[in-house]
């Protein structure tokens, strides 16, 4: 696995969250690690804009040729935008998970929750631990 972006946050469910403090929005996607484990993504199901979501609860799913996997929300908040491009090009999640393959943007209920997510070092240690289990 290559380097992962350092200035954003991560979860144990292999999602990343990037805060745009100015806009008050957090962009969410799945990590390279998750994308590699999933294999070729063929379909992405995303929530409707305006949906209220809770931390750790499912907000959508990613389907690969192996399985359908739930997406777990890193933070509680309201969905403000979803990546419509994934409808026609779900492979973006596999090919560019940290950029073009982003999933949704939410306005967090409590911005403090963001800093309680894993740092890139913590996440790297976490995934390394999974591989050596």
């Amino acid at each position: 696995m290559g380097k992962i972006p350092e200035n954003i946050r991560y979860t144990r469910d292999h999602e990343w969250a990037a805060l745009d403090a100015g806009a008050g929005l957090v962009t969410v996607g799945i990590t390279q690690y998750a994308a590699e484990k999933l294999g070729d993504v063929v379909f992405v199901e995303l929530p409707e804009v305006g949906t209220e979501v809770e931390a750790d609860e499912t907000y959508g799913s990613v389907e690969s040729t192996k399985a359908v996997s739930d997406l777990f929300c890193p933070l509680a908040g309201k969905i403000e935008e979803v990546n419509d491009g994934l409808e026609d090009n779900p492979e973006l999640v596999s090919e560019d998970p940290f950029d073009e393959g982003w999933l949704m943007k939410l306005s967090p209920r409590d911005i403090e929750d963001y800093s309680s997510l894993m740092s890139s070092e913590d996440y790297e240690a976490f995934t390394a631990g999974l591989e050596n289990e």
């Binding site: 750790d56 499912t58 359908v68 739930d70 777990f72």
Partner: peptide, 17 residues
């Protein structure tokens, strides 16, 4: 089983894993 979350969603429940 994968059907469990779907059965809950259809009854208007949210899932906590």
């Amino acid at each position: 089983h994968g059907t469990n979350p779907a059965s809950c969603r259809l009854n208007d429940y949210r899932i906590v894993q």
